[in-house]
């Protein structure tokens, strides 16, 4: 029986090498492309009618748009308006990436630590740059929580700095670990089903429940990732 983590292995579909660097189009790239196509199709085809009274699909597209618009309004405020396209894209990309990963035989690119880490690091760097541009050196007051007694500063400032720099790690690992753990668990139960033969009905029932749970996790993690991005952005714009 194959290892439960075997599923995360990438297969090169179109070999590509640029300046000695392997940039092959892999299963991961394929499902990123599928995600891009699916998001674009969802957001444009459903709005094609642009009816005043929306149908089901149009309603879903409008709801996801307003969901993120509200999230930014609540967590960042009016200044967050500029970053709406980026955050909306980010949410849809992760959400659909997680969800297409639930299709049997599909690949979940969000279960790759490098993918989530690049996204988290980009956000981290971007947010820090936004904060520095807006507030200059005053930005570093972020590391001194307001109302801190001076005597505690030597203790609190390092903690704040560490927690700040851990953000990209926690943000990326949270998404990666959730997606990986879910898919591994499903694979394990799938393996049990095969091993147990007739008795395999029991793990199948569990697998059904787990699939539902995983779909929930897929949505939840996309939401968490986006909300945390908003909170980091809010920190950079408003400095606590």
């Amino acid at each position: 029986m194959a290892s439960p983590v075997e599923q995360f292995k990438l297969k090169s579909l179109v070999p590509l090498e640029l300046g000695g660097v392997d940039l092959s189009f892999t299963t991961s790239s394929l499902w990123m492309t599928v995600t891009v196509a699916a998001v674009t199709a969802f957001l444009t085809l459903s709005m094609r009618g642009g009816r005043l009274v929306p149908g089901r699909w149009q309603s879903m597209a409008e709801m996801s748009y307003e969901f993120i618009a509200n999230m930014i309004r609540e967590n960042v405020g009016a200044e967050g308006r500029k970053y709406f396209p980026f955050i909306f894209t980010l949410f849809m990309f992760i959400l659909v990436g997680n969800l297409v990963g639930m299709i049997p035989f599909a690949y979940t690119f969000t279960s790759q630590i490098i993918v989530t880490f690049v996204m988290a690091a980009t956000i981290f760097v971007g947010v820090t740059v936004i904060g520095l541009i807006r507030h200059g050196l005053h930005f570093f007051s972020l590391f001194v929580p307001s109302g801190t007694p001076l005597i505690l500063a030597p203790l609190l400032i390092p903690i704040e700095i560490i927690s700040y720099f851990v953000r990209p790690v926690s943000l990326s690992v949270r998404l990666f670990a959730n997606m990986m753990a879910g898919h591994t668990m499903m694979k394990v139960f799938g393996g049990f089903t095969v091993l147990l033969g007739v008795l395999g009905v029991a793990p199948i029932i569990l697998l059904v429940a787990l699939t539902g749970f995983e779909i929930m996790v897929a949505v939840l993690q996309a939401y968490v990732f986006t909300v945390l991005t908003c909170l980091y952005l809010n920190d950079a714009i408003h400095l606590h």
Binding site: L10, D22, T40, P85, F86, F88, I114
Partner: peptide
């Protein structure tokens, strides 16, 4: 695998960003 993944992530994300920001969002 990292180089390839980063490359395709950046490409697909940028493409999606422009599709969403320039095509889908104005319509919505």
């Amino acid at each position: 695998t990292y180089a390839s993944q980063i490359f395709w992530l950046v490409v697909s994300f940028i493409v999606l960003y422009f599709l969403v920001a320039k095509v889908a969002m104005p319509r919505i």
